[in-house]
Nucleic acid binder design. Structure first.
Lengths: 124, 124
DNA sequence: CTGGATCCTCAACGATACTG
DNA sequence: CAGTATCGTTGAGGATCCAG
């Protein structure tokens, strides 16, 4: 039996819910370029609270997508890096971010057209 | 100035938030294979309520990713179809679903390993 | 520096009922 | 068939403080 995300009971649904997530996309996109520390990630992603960052990192770690390495320095240094599995996903989700950045103008134009429908009378 | 999803103020962030969405991914995945009607979509995606489906469809329509066509039959028939812009996105987001379905086993294994860390003593 | 614990708020969602 | 409207709940997330 194949996994099927359209089936409600399939565990795939839970995974999809986690990776189809704005913050996960941005985090994986950063880590694709190399390991990073907690505060470095926090500063790189504006409006991402420390709580949600910690939450998201722990979930991604649990899913085997990244590793958390603590170095016994003072104060402690923690580094996050993609696993091989995470690397296969990073390319996929980064494509999502790139799509958004590439097509933002078209989307905004569509939004203006939608919001203005019926409010103007073209050539009538 | 390039759009940058890591910048909090960038409109790209809003778009990313919308397309990095479980339901949007599943809807676009279905429409990639051809136009569909409302209740057909609803039945095809388990646990998706009619309210959230309507909401998501309207947002995707506003973003110029799909079209809504109502046929004056009795009762009314409404068909949803991808726009050319939506088609460029559908492939990208469908890759997300396919990744989830392809790697679910590895993710679940990682989850078990994570949840069981420290609870067993390997070969000690 | 890297978080965990707490409190609080608001918005998303399910359920339900109704309409063209 | 294809939705809109309303209500009630819940849980995600911001803010803040504290600790190893």
């Amino acid at each position: 039996m194949q996994p099927n995300a359209y089936t409600g009971a399939c565990p795939t649904r839970v995974v999809l819910d986690r990776i189809a997530d704005k913050w996960a996309v941005l985090i994986l996109g950063l880590l694709a370029e190399g390991p990073m520390r907690f505060n470095s990630l926090r500063r790189s992603i504006e409006r991402l609270s420390q709580k949600v960052l910690a939450q998201t990192l722990r979930r991604l770690e649990r899913d085997g997508l990244l590793t958390r390495t603590a170095f016994p320095t003072v104060p402690v240094t923690v580094e996050y890096a993609l696993t091989p599995l995470g690397r296969t996903l990073a390319e996929t989700v980064d494509a999502l971010r790139l799509w958004a950045e590439a097509h933002i103008t078209e989307v905004q134009a569509a939004q203006r057209a939608y919001d203005g429908r019926g409010l103007v009378m073209p050539d009538a």
